[in-house]
Design a protein around this nucleic acid. Structure first.
Lengths: 113, 113
DNA sequence: ACACGAATTGAAGACTTCTGCAATTCGGCA
DNA sequence: TGCCGAATTGCAGAAGTCTTCAATTCGTGT
């Protein structure tokens, strides 16, 4: 297995390694959404959100298109949901006897899908 | 869902966002291995590998223990394998009509499990 | 053509991560 | 006890990421 392939994999995971970007992906699991909506739910500067969306676009995990006066974003593949779900499971396993984040993870896991 | 939980999720993914760390996790999927072995397979300075192992330990995705004269590392939960598999699938989907990395991904996917 | 809101881009400073070197710790064994 | 290899730690410079500001693009509607 070549070094470039490992770098591609690493880049893929690094793309998810930011709270705003995780949040965007979770919101997009429910279907395409305009930037407008993401902005109203995420509490971040518009320019910052745009930067994070650009990171997600560059790696190819989301795509964007225009619909009327709004720009829409969508997951490029539903496989992203599996990745997020696997991340949740590991977080649960890892936190299971550590700090108070676990209770919260459990309490919200259904709503956060 | 609280901000700290998003940060924990992001941290989890960021932990995987490095070629050496990805490589270590893939090697550990086959079972516990001593640092010695990892070093012989990864081509990185010993101190650098130690730093990356420390990152993985801090997040809790791997654990370490001593066995005779060697330090062993192992996955803390088999769920990590799911995460890597999901990453591979997304990479395949994302690269499917881009550059030459796709062919390589396919050619090696069985051996790289 | 013009003005407006929506979204993106560019750039700078603060901050974090990465890498390699030298020094250190730690256990096992003569 | 003293030595040896295995692994880790501390550190400093280089490289990369994050955030915010101001400026810009782009389409829509008048």
């Amino acid at each position: 297995m070549s070094v470039p392939l490992y770098q591609a994999k690493a880049e893929m995971f690094r793309t998810l390694g930011h709270p705003v970007r995780i949040r965007v992906l979770e919101l997009l699991q429910a279907g395409p959404r305009p930037v407008r909506d993401l902005l109203s739910e995420i509490d971040v500067e518009p320019s910052n959100l745009s930067q994070q969306l650009a990171v997600l676009r560059r790696t190819g995990v989301v795509v964007s298109f225009r619909d009327g006066g709004l720009v829409m974003y969508a997951l490029s593949t539903p496989d992203v949901a599996d990745l997020l779900a696997a991340g949740r499971r590991i977080l649960g396993a890892v936190l299971s006897d550590r700090d108070g984040l676990l209770a919260e993870l459990k309490a919200h896991s259904a709503a956060d899908q």
